[in-house]
């Protein structure tokens, strides 16, 4: 099914305004920092705050030629578990592949919700309470960056140091060093979570 096996493909499901594009961008730049090739683009629709969005990210050791949207991802990241009701997040995810989701629910519960909506997913589900973690450490709901910690732990597609470095580069000027440090702390905590 998958056309190019050596390209690692990720789909982010989120709602407009939740920062999926930023999350993909941080990962993309981290991978570039490590000498890899990337491609990241949103599913180009009307961007409205709160509406479901899809963002694609490819990472590869070889140049990426294709421009088709990702149809068969290796990993899916869901930033908002209410999307399970309207989006087929597990499409083309097989048993060896992973679903990382910002949720308080258990993986069994998430699997049940997917099944109730007519989906079928036998792979591993990694729920992480990214909202809770970011509220606790940062004091603001910033699931998009916190979930990156979990993402790296699960996929090892880039290194935590690269992501931290990139985060600092992109955000230090925008949000100040104190808030940046707290965000990074939250990413690291998510990375260490089992």
């Amino acid at each position: 099914m998958k056309y190019e096996k050596d390209i690692f493909e990720i789909i982010f499901f989120a709602r407009g305004g939740q920062g999926a594009k930023t999350a993909a961008e941080i990962l993309a730049q981290s991978a570039v920092e490590e000498g890899k090739f990337v491609q990241s683009f949103p599913n180009f629709g009307p961007e409205r705050s709160g509406a479901p969005t899809k963002t694609y990210l490819r990472i590869s050791d070889q140049p990426i030629l294709t421009h088709e949207p990702i149809v068969d991802p290796d990993v899916v990241v869901v930033l908002d578990d209410t999307l399970l009701g309207s989006q087929n997040v597990s499409d083309n995810l097989d048993r060896r592949e992973a679903l990382i989701i910002n949720s308080k629910f258990s993986s069994e519960k998430i699997r049940t919700i997917i099944a109730e909506k007519g989906g079928k997913f036998e792979g591993k589900i990694y729920p992480i309470d990214a909202d809770g973690l970011s509220l606790e450490i940062i004091g603001q709901p910033r699931p998009n960056t916190v979930i990156l910690g979990k993402f790296i732990q699960v996929t090892e597609v880039t290194r935590l140091e690269s992501v931290v470095k990139e985060f600092r580069k992109i955000f230090e000027e925008k949000i100040g060093s104190e808030l940046t440090t707290k965000n990074i702390e939250a990413v690291e905590k998510a990375y260490d979570e089992i």
Partner: peptide, 11 residues
């Protein structure tokens, strides 16, 4: 290409 290139991050 609008969006496919203009809004797509690539090396």
């Amino acid at each position: 290409d609008g969006f496919n290139t203009s809004h797509s991050v690539e090396n």
